[in-house]
């Protein structure tokens, strides 16, 4: 299991590291605990978020991501542990923190009968400093919706508005809770580019997601959360490299057994989802040759054969023994 202590060094140049270390982390979480009744939703989580990075909390639904984020936002009180946001104590300096952070909740949670422009202007009022609503409307491609009631917007437009609203106070740190949930693939890619644009402007982003691909492609560093605990933390590439030197061989075959497949050359593990097989191989050519020979002998049909490098999904499977979607 990876912890923060055995992380490899950040591959960025030394001078950048020095500049970063001079700055305090934007978010510091130490031994965070939150219980609901007897159930501990968050069970001793610790991580830091560095200024300017896109940090992801990745985990299945119910893993404790939203609870963690809501404690950081000052919406819930922790039962234990220490949390500092922008160097301030989340309990004592709640008001000061709220002035400087942007928040997007999992549900859009807006006034359904206000117009888009009215809504942005209203929220601008709540803060000491704010961006011009017109600029956010342009940045998020909502020009044609500006005069529409919020409830008339499509799901994707509401989601974009919800993110725009999180930026109305020109925050240093933005929390995005499942921002691409329910979006179609194109809208999801658009939102990623918005998040990257934020990063380019120096904004730190903490994003939760249950999409592995999203975490892999969007985040600089990821904490994988399972049942209220962090099971791995690091950049996606590092996590994969640290956990695996295998590649995955995928195919569909009826009537195969895992003992047979696990015995093929260079295969370290074989997992089946119905008749969809994943073989982890340390030597892909050897495994492929063995597989095809075996299929020929058994007269089995092999369909959809493909090879890919390991992904965060494989990391999750290996670390928890469970498939991510379980």
């Amino acid at each position: 299991m990876l912890t923060r202590t055995d992380q490899p060094l950040d591959p960025t140049p030394a001078f950048k590291d020095a500049a970063r270390s001079a700055e305090l982390p934007v978010v510091e979480v130490e031994g965070l605990v939150k219980c609901y009744g007897n159930v501990s939703a968050v069970d001793g989580i610790a991580f830091d978020v560095r200024r300017g990075e896109i940090f992801g909390l990745l985990g299945p639904n119910g893993a404790g991501k939203t609870t963690t984020v809501e404690i950081l936002e000052g919406l819930r009180d922790a039962d234990g542990g220490a949390v500092r946001v922008l160097g301030l104590d989340v309990r004592r300096d709640r008001e000061a923190i709220k002035q400087r952070i942007g928040v997007q909740l999992q549900t859009p949670s807006l006034f359904p009968r206000l117009k888009v422009l009215e809504l942005l202007r209203l929220f601008a009022r709540f803060y000491r400093r704010s961006l011009p609503p017109e600029r956010l409307i342009a940045d998020f491609g909502l020009e044609e919706s500006a005069g529409k009631l919020v409830k008339q917007l499509s799901g994707g437009q509401q989601q974009r508005l919800s993110v725009a609203l999180a930026l109305i106070n020109d925050p240093e740190l933005v929390f995005l809770d499942e921002p691409t949930n329910g979006l179609d693939p194109q809208a999801r890619i658009n939102l990623w580019s918005v998040v990257r644009a934020l990063q380019a402007r120096g904004v730190t982003v903490l994003v939760t997601t249950h999409y592995l691909e999203e975490a892999e492609r969007l985040c600089d560093r990821v904490a994988i959360i399972e049942r209220g605990r962090i099971v791995a933390l690091g950049s996606p590439r590092e996590l994969i490299r640290e956990t695996f030197d295998e590649s995955a061989v995928l195919f569909h075959a009826e009537g195969a057994s895992s003992t047979e497949l696990a015995a093929l050359p260079a295969v370290s593990a074989a997992h089946a989802d119905e008749a969809d097989w994943t073989l982890y191989s340390t030597d892909v050519p050897a495994t492929m040759a063995g597989l095809l020979a075996w299929a020929g002998r058994r007269k089995l049909q092999i369909e959809g054969l493909s090879v890919r490098g390991a992904t965060l999904e494989d990391v999750f499977l290996k670390l928890t023994g469970r498939r991510f979607r379980d």
Partner: peptide, 13 residues
């Protein structure tokens, strides 16, 4: 129910 109160609670309002 729509979490609007919570969203407003996340602002300095």
């Amino acid at each position: 129910e729509s979490k609007l109160l919570r969203r407003l609670g996340a602002t300095p309002l």
